[in-house]
Each structure stands twice: as structure tokens, then as C-alpha cells.
Amino acid sequence: MDIRTHRSLIILFLVSLILLFVRVGIPETRQILSILFFYIALSEVFNLFTGLTLYVCFGYVAFVALGMYGGGATIKYLLSASSPPPLAVVLACAFAVAGILALILALAVGWISVRLKGAYFAIATIGLNEGLKNLIEGTGIWGGSSGLVIANDLIQSYNYDTFIFVTSELADYLIFTVYAVTILCIYLVIKSRLGYGLAALREDEEAANVMGVNVVRYKLIVFVISATLAGMLGAGKMIKDVAIYPPQAFAVSYTVEAIVISMLGGLGTVTGPVIGGLIYGVLKYVLTVSFPGLQLLALAPALMAMCVMFPYGIVGWLRRRFKGSKIESLLI
């Protein structure tokens, strides 16, 4: 295997590793870099489905929230035993359960919705977020509308220092791991038969179908992969936040942010969300400090302007600008 064929991916991983080392080495960057890791991971996961298919799922945050609930409930259940299992086992189970729950939900919703085209898909999934939230509040599972808190369970089962380490250090590295895995997934998908089929689907779904691309199966595969990773990202966020309440967990702002970052960087690209996430993360950090609570008021017009004037994002623009040169081949 020639390593040069994958050099764009290697460069991206090196940049990410540098960010990680900065995070480990300089404690002052902790706050902003953990925001960055989360948002880049969120939009990479979102991009894996929406970028590659150009189908938008407005209820996407439901998978992250389900992962948070699944992970949190698993941790609470395992720690309620008289002798709690080792931390690593607990966290691994939390991630596994979060991923599996998101996978099941994605299969159930996706099995119906990916058969539909364009706007019909959006209709089928826009209520996903609201629906799951109302199911949890209505039936009262997982604490219902009063939320699920695992901080005390962690402190009592281990000790306070471990709790601080897990929530402020380990959680960031876990989120970073989800981010790295997602990048690898998108890259592999793009370079595979699946990726070429999806490229054909983006150009013309009917034609791709006629030419033998099983569009329904292809859409379902990326939908499920993306949702599973979103669930695992949720587990990471749960370990970081140690609490979840329905109004915040199902906040529409996550969906908006994922769309903004993906479109700013470039839909359907691997590098796009990283570039978009870096810009957005820094902007958000500055905005939340100077104008708390007004970020969506600023984000929504920015997103509208992007739709009208700049639909291909930064990476899309750079690709056109440097068409045919070496730079284009680096911008995956």
C-alpha cells in the first residue's frame, strides 16, 4: 500500500493530534478545546449522513440525547450494585449501550424514512426530536421531565478525585476518540464502493437507482453508522456533563450548530467540519463570553446567508479555487 494515497487523512490526523497535545500540555486551553472537540465531532457525525447523501434530518440531536440517556442509565445501573465494577468496564458498557440504543432507533426510523425522497425524508424525521422528548416526559422513564443525574453515583462508587478526573479529563479524550473514529469512518466510506454509490445518488438519485445502486440500502447504511456514532458521542457528553434534562438534551441548537459547521466547512467533506468547527468553536467561545444567550439570534441569519451565497462552504470554495493543483487533492 502506498502511503501517499492517504496523505490527506494522515495530515488531518496529525493536526488533530497537535490539538490533543495542546489540550494535554496547556491546562488553560482545556475549556475552549473541549468545546472544539465536541463540536467538530458533532458535525463530522452529522456530515457523515447529511454531507454524503444531501438528506437533512432535523431531529438529529435525538440520537445524541438518546446516547446521553443510554450511557447515563447504564452507569447508574452498574454503580447501584453493592460492589461497583471497575471504571473502565462501566465506561465501556455505557458507550456500548449508547451506541446500540442509537443504532436500534436509527434502524427503526431509518427503515421507514430512507425509502422517502428529499422533503418527505425531512418530514419523517423532523418530529424525531420532539417525539422522543415527549415519550420520555410522557412515560416518565429515565427520570422523565426531572432528568437523570449520575454525579453522586460516580462520587460514591469511586472517590472525588476520580470523579474530577473522569469528568474534566477523560471525557474529553473519549469525545476526541469518537471524533477520530468518525473521521476514519467518513474517509473509508468516501473511498469505498458505498461512497461512489452515494456520490451518484447525490448527483441524480433516480439515475443511480436505475444504474444498479441500491439507494435505499446505501442511505440506510450511512444513516445507521452516523446515528450510532452520534449515540456514542452522547455517551461521551454524558460522562462530561454527568446530568441530563429533557429541555437541554433535546435543544434544537445542536442540530442548527451541526448544520452551520458542516455547511461553513463544506458538506460531504472530511476536512470541512474540522475547519468549520475550529472557526465556529472560537466564535462561539467569544460570543458566549460577550453576548450570552444570543448565539442562535446571530447563527440563524448567518446560516440563511450561507444558504444563499455560500452553499459549498470553505472547502468547496478552496477546491474550486485550486482546481487541478496539489492543494485540491489534499482537501478531502
Partner: peptide, 12 residues
């Protein structure tokens, strides 16, 4: 996708 996102953003 563009018109969907545009109207969604306008609603927000």
C-alpha cells in the same frame, strides 16, 4: 437541502 435549511434557519 438548501431550501430546507434556509426555511429551518428562518424559523429559528
Amino acid at each position: 437541502l438548501i431550501s430546507l435549511v434556509l426555511m429551518f434557519a428562518f424559523g429559528i
